[in-house]
């Protein structure tokens, strides 16, 4: 296990390097000059050239990369062109709302999807099963922003249960924190509930046909225990895998949801940075997301050991 972890963590280094190179190159291939954006509409060519020199954009591609990469090694992601702040500081400011939203979404998703999928598998072909199937088709096909505006309209504007927009940090009290995040989290969770409930259903349904489930019933155990301790416990590996993939995908969904509900997280930061051609911020955020991806995957792999004693690294 220790050797496995060491190997996996070492393996992230080349992954990060490749991500860094691709991100760096890709941004510079996209048309649009950050200096022109910063200088504004009234700027002269000299102004723009001066800003380019200030930002270091007049140097060669490799020279720019070398400066950036050198900073990376020491944990310095560079300075934002637009906000005139350290990118690390910017990310640190914005990471709270995004992680809060992602965390709450996943908690809601798992709490709804896993029991729903398990029950649907248990009563295979029953009304709950059919309702879940119908719901998951809807969940997959309605875009996040449509659900978001619908939820905001009904729950915030019509019946006024939740605020329409905005974010309160955890330090403002857990009640306020949840109240502000619940609508966006619900919005985001719909597609993941659809996905994870379906995977749970398939996985548990398969486990229910196994001999050990018959053994459990022959022991006179109540159905709830048969279902949870025997069927669900054996179905856990594929479910956790999909939850892991879900968390990774979630970060993409956060960008849209944050815009709909005006949450000052990494999603809005990304959108602003792209519009302003703020290269260091875009690079920093993407790199940060990749680290997150790698960590989540590692976490999922490690969790297998606890879920299934047959898996050893």
């Amino acid at each position: 296990m220790g050797a496995f972890l060491a190997k996996r963590i070492l393996a992230t280094i080349p992954v990060m390097l490749i991500v860094a190179i691709i991100v760096f190159a890709l941004i510079r291939l996209v048309p649009g000059d950050p200096a022109a954006v910063i200088a504004g509409n009234m700027a002269t060519n000299e102004d723009i050239a001066r800003i380019r020199t200030e930002l270091g954009l007049d140097r060669g591609f490799f020279a720019q990369f070398a400066i950036w990469a050198k900073g990376l090694v020491t944990g310095d992601l560079g300075q934002s062109f637009f906000f005139k702040k350290d990118v690390t500081a910017l990310i640190a400011e914005r990471v709270g709302p995004t992680l809060s939203l992602a965390f709450l979404t996943i908690v809601i998703t798992v709490l709804i999807a896993v029991p729903l999928g398990t029950l649907a598998a248990w009563r295979h072909g029953g009304w709950l099963d059919r309702a879940l199937m119908g719901f998951s088709v809807l969940g997959f096909s309605i875009p996040v922003f449509v659900i978001g505006y619908l939820f905001a309209y009904f729950f915030a504007l019509r019946i006024d249960w939740f605020p329409v927009q905005g974010y309160k940090p955890l330090s403002a009290g857990i009640g306020e924190w949840i109240r502000h995040l619940l609508l966006p989290a619900l919005t985001l969770s719909i597609v993941y509930v659809a996905l994870i409930a379906r995977v749970t259903r398939a996985s548990v349904a398969e486990a229910l046909t196994e001999d050990y489930v018959r053994t459990a019933r022959a022991k006179g155990l109540p159905e709830s225990r048969v279902l949870i301790k025997h069927a669900l416990a054996n179905a856990a590996v594929p479910i956790v895998t999909v939850i892991g993939i879900g968390v990774a995908l979630l970060i993409g969904g956060v960008v849209v949801t944050e815009s709909v509900f005006s949450i000052p997280g990494l999603g809005t930061l990304t959108v602003d940075a792209v519009l302003a051609r703020d290269f260091p911020v875009i690079q920093g955020v993407i790199l940060f997301f990749s680290v997150l991806y790698v960590l989540i995957n590692l976490l999922v792999d490690v969790s297998y050991v606890f879920l299934d004693p047959r898996i050893r690294y």
Partner: peptide, 19 residues
């Protein structure tokens, strides 16, 4: 079940819960 009547199955490989 399990108290007054109990059962042993054919496949010992699959009849026990692996986890």
């Amino acid at each position: 079940r399990g108290t007054e009547m109990a059962m042993i199955f054919q496949e010992p490989m699959t009849a026990l819960n692996p986890v």
